[in-house]
């Protein structure tokens, strides 16, 4: 079932004059689906997220949440269907992690915010889902960034939404924590059939975890598709391309393009891992790596050292650092 869809949605700002970030968007997100919203800085990820979450009015068009126009819903009705994890840093005083999660029940409780047994069970369930049972009784302010993010996701879950929107939930987290957050989100979609929309800067993680990508181009156009489709048809490269960086479809990462007049180095060797890291070191140092033997310098990778031959000398290096120093000193 479709959790949220946009109908000819135009987003942007009304300042002194209208600033259109993206126009005529027709996007949709179905239950059980994890969609990552990606795009270069300034393309409008946050504007789209804020508009979909009802925190900002669209310039035109509608956002339909389970068929209801969100601008027609009361704040309470919206809060029962949609919950968010924002980038705002929060200071909830002396509340424990569990009390922060329990605040997620706000739209479901009465005037005195009393939690029923069912509310308590939902809160505990949300905490268990993000594997945060050990954190629940600790003061929220004592938690690390990664732990806080888990609790904020649990809080969003406790709201019992049919759509969960997360704005940059993996920013400021180290790699294991980022992977953990995405794993939790995957679990939500596969086990609970939740619809989840995540905006992220982390292209690699998005490519690995999302069912679909919404890719915003700097022009405001949005391309939708499975991550692999967008890699194959060049959309990713297209959206992110900038001076000096190019998307390498083989390694699924951005590589820094060497300056035009880079010297060429031939690379030989048998160990694929040692070859890979040698190639990385050479590229980083501004050399163009070629497989042909006709380059002015040939580097051979051995099991415990490297041999560089060219410029009328031959040198053995015991580390890649030495090798880079040597090659730079040759100034070929």
């Amino acid at each position: 079932m479709i959790a949220v869809e946009t109908d000819q949605l135009s987003i942007g700002y009304r300042r002194r004059r209208e600033v259109v970030v993206a126009a005529h968007l027709c996007l949709s997100l179905t239950d059980g689906e994890l969609v990552c919203l990606i795009g270069p800085n300034g393309a409008g990820k946050s504007t789209l997220i804020r508009t979909l979450a009802g925190m900002q009015k669209p310039l035109s068009g509608r956002v339909l949440l389970r068929g209801h126009d969100i601008s027609q819903l009361t704040p309470m009705a919206l809060a029962r269907m949609l919950s968010v994890v924002l980038t705002d840093r929060i200071d909830p005083g002396m509340l424990t992690a569990r009390e922060v999660v329990a605040l997620g029940r706000h739209p479901h409780t009465g005037w005195d915010a009393r939690l029923t047994d069912r509310d308590q069970a939902v809160v505990e369930d949300a905490i268990a889902t993000v594997d945060a049972a050990g954190l629940a009784d600790r003061p929220f302010r004592d938690l690390s960034d990664g732990e806080r993010q888990k609790i904020m996701i649990a809080r969003a879950l406790a709201q019992s939404p049919s759509l969960l929107i997360l704005d940059e939930p993996t920013a400021f987290l180290d790699l294991p924590r980022r992977v953990e957050v995405m794993r939790v989100l995957r679990k939500l979609t596969s086990e609970r059939g939740a619809a989840v929309l995540v905006s992220t800067h982390d292209l690699d993680l998005a490519l690995r975890s999302a069912d679909r990508l919404w890719l915003i181009h700097p022009s405001g156009a949005v391309t939708v598709g499975a991550p692999e489709d967008l890699v194959l048809n060049g959309s990713i490269d297209d959206a992110f391309c900038s001076v000096g960086a190019v998307f390498d479809a083989e390694s699924a990462t951005f590589t820094i393009t060497p300056p035009d007049a880079a010297s060429t180095v031939s690379l030989r060797g048998s160990d694929p891992i040692r070859l890979l890291w040698t190639k990385r070191a050479l590229t980083r140092s501004g050399f163009q790596v070629s497989d042909a033997d006709n380059a002015p310098v040939v580097v051979t990778v051995y099991q415990d050292n490297w041999a560089a031959v060219g410029c009328e000398c031959a040198v053995y290096c015991s580390s890649l650092y030495d090798l880079m120093q040597t090659l730079r000193s040759w100034k070929f």
């Binding site: 704040p75 809060a79 929060i90 509340l95 922060v100 605040l103």
Partner: peptide, 13 residues
């Protein structure tokens, strides 16, 4: 306590 943005998202007018 969660800030105004979160309060809004919790249905607080």
């Amino acid at each position: 306590l969660l800030g105004e943005n979160y309060a809004r998202s919790l249905g607080v007018n």
